[in-house]
Amino acid sequence: MSTPEELIAQADKKAKPVSGFSSLFSGSSTYRFEEAADLYVQAANQYKLQKNFSSAGKLFEKASESYLKASSPDEAGNILVESYKAYKNTSPADAARCLSKAIEHFTSRGQFRRAANFKCDLGDLYLLVNDKESAIKSFEDAGDWYSSDSAESLSNKSYLKAADLKAEMGNYIEAAETYEKIAEKSLSNNLTKWSTKDYFTKAILCRLASDDYPGAFSKLDLFVTWDRTFATTREFKFLNELLENVKDGDSEAIGKSCADYDQFSRLDNWKVSILTKIKDSVAGGGGNIVDGAGGEDDLT
């Protein structure tokens, strides 16, 4: 077996545009580019064997370019996914670049389902490099594409991730609206209606965090009309208490009801941070500043 360097040299030779007389003997140009891409892929696989992932990724990219020149965008997309896989562990930024290019190819070929799958991966990747804006955008695109492909649950999953991130960024109103949309879509299905109370809770919390008390109140009523069983859940009781406390501006009571709720169902990090935010805003608005650290202690 030849070394990757030799393979690259061969491939480069093949990929060079042939002009004039010799082109008559060397077959059609698409065929040549395909051969070059094949050689690049072989070399890249050898680099992968040597665990030299960044070189492998670069070669996969080159291969995809060759495939593009050979006018087979499907192959180019597939190879770009390979390069994403190679880059994934070593340089997430490059991986994201490759993956978004691949997604472009897939969408241009009308494979939205596949594109959505990769868009989700892309979102995770953006999270890895802490680019939340892009991650939100990716997850929303994925959700749109899934829902256009009548895959409600998958689209809900993507929207949910986007909404969680939005709330983390402090974009509470949009997050709340997304949660409401998801909850409404989940209600009709027997398999997903069990999660609605979680969505309801998150939506209300987001409303409260954006200081929209009347909105939160009316939404809670609306949710009960959507799902009658919600009124009997612990979440409903907790939210009612919370609303009451927010109305009274009693940050101590908020901490207490959170602690009570936490006794039975653990509050995850997301909820803890948003509840802390609510509590702080209540404490700030009420005039008596209660130290935020104490609030966090109560919640965790």
């Binding site: 895959a151 409600e152 649950s153 997903t192 999660s195």
Partner: peptide, 12 residues
Amino acid sequence: ANILNDLRSQRE
């Protein structure tokens, strides 16, 4: 609830 959600997406 999570499992049911997963089931639905897997069904899709």
